[in-house]
């Protein structure tokens, strides 16, 4: 089978390919800023070449066939691993792409006297490596998306700080998407903390929330009324002009809620309200 020739080249020169390949990857400093040491890289390269030899012997260059399943698995793992360690997409794809040159050199030597076969096998190798690089890039992308989704989830759950601006005045700078299934629970937990600090006014700052649609508006409205029931007044800040205009068209009535364009304006208002609040209470005694 003609397929077998590329596989034989890979098998025969495995050791040489491995060291050439590692040299390719480390030579021009592409991987310099990344957290991978040479032993780790060598391990990955040897494992990959072993899998690749077996796959090409059994399945030719059909990378989506069953013979290539172990190769695909490994690329998936490698790409996710690199993605999580902050490698760029090209640094990740380099793993596979840098194998091209070493393979070409071996093919050139082996088929020196057979120009037809030489061309044929170089062509095959190109196809093989390019499809593997594509798989790697796709896996990298999936890995990145998982990381981003996780970060977004974590952001809302963990890192929404409760900032004390003044005695009795707190700010909640929300960051991230506010429309997940969990949002309402998160907001109520935050409110509970506000109540525990004995504050009377909370400024919910949505500068870090990119989109305010009906669901986000609903969460905000619910939070404001829940706060009212707990004796806390809410001001929503960070309502940029484009968001204000969009909300008007959506038709959602935020008229019951005090909104301000930025945190500073909201804080000014909170201070004056607080002054009035104290005054009224003193007056009422």
């Amino acid at each position: 089978m003609a397929n077998g020739r590329l596989a034989q080249v890979l098998e025969r020169h495995r050791a040489q390919l491995s060291s050439d390949w590692i040299r390719e990857q480390t030579a021009d400093g592409v991987l310099r800023d990344t957290r991978i040491d040479e032993a780790e890289l060598r391990g990955q390269c040897d494992e990959f070449l072993a899998l690749l030899v077996r796959a090409t012997l059994e399945g030719g260059t059909n990378v989506s066939g069953p013979a290539f399943a172990p190769v695909r698995d490994m690329l998936e793992r490698m790409a996710r691993w690199r993605g999580e360690r902050g490698f760029t997409p090209s640094q990740t794809a380099l793993f596979v792409l840098s194998l091209k040159k070493p393979i070409f050199s071996r093919i050139r030597v082996d088929f020196e006297r057979e120009p037809g076969a030489l061309f044929q096998e170089i062509w095959r190798a190109t196809e093989l490596i390019d499809s593997l690089a594509l798989l790697t890039t796709e896996a990298f992308q999936r890995g990145r998306e998982a990381v981003i989704a996780r970060q977004q989830a974590e952001m809302l759950e963990l890192s929404t700080p409760v900032v004390k601006l003044w005695e009795g005045i707190l700010a909640l700078p929300l960051i991230g998407t506010l429309d997940s299934a969990r949002t309402q629970t998160v907001m109520e937990t935050l409110l509970q903390r506000v109540v525990e600090t004995g504050s009377e006014i909370v400024i919910i700052d949505i500068t870090g929330v990119p989109t305010v649609d009906t669901l986000v508006a609903q969460h905000l409205l619910k939070t404001v009324s829940a706060a009212r029931l707990m004796g806390v007044e809410c001001i929503i800040s960070g309502v940029r002009p484009q968001i204000a205009q969009t909300i008007v068209h959506l038709g959602v009535a935020l008229s019951d809620v005090i909104t301000k364009a930025n945190l500073a304006d909201a804080f000014k208002l909170a201070l004056s309200k607080r002054g009035m609040g104290i005054g009224a209470r003193t007056g009422g005694v």
Partner: peptide, 17 residues
């Protein structure tokens, strides 16, 4: 512009949900 972008993104958010 920014306002139109925001309108489009918000409308798309509604319909995808």
């Amino acid at each position: 512009g920014l306002v139109d972008q925001t309108k489009l993104v918000t409308a798309a958010s509604e319909l995808s949900r």
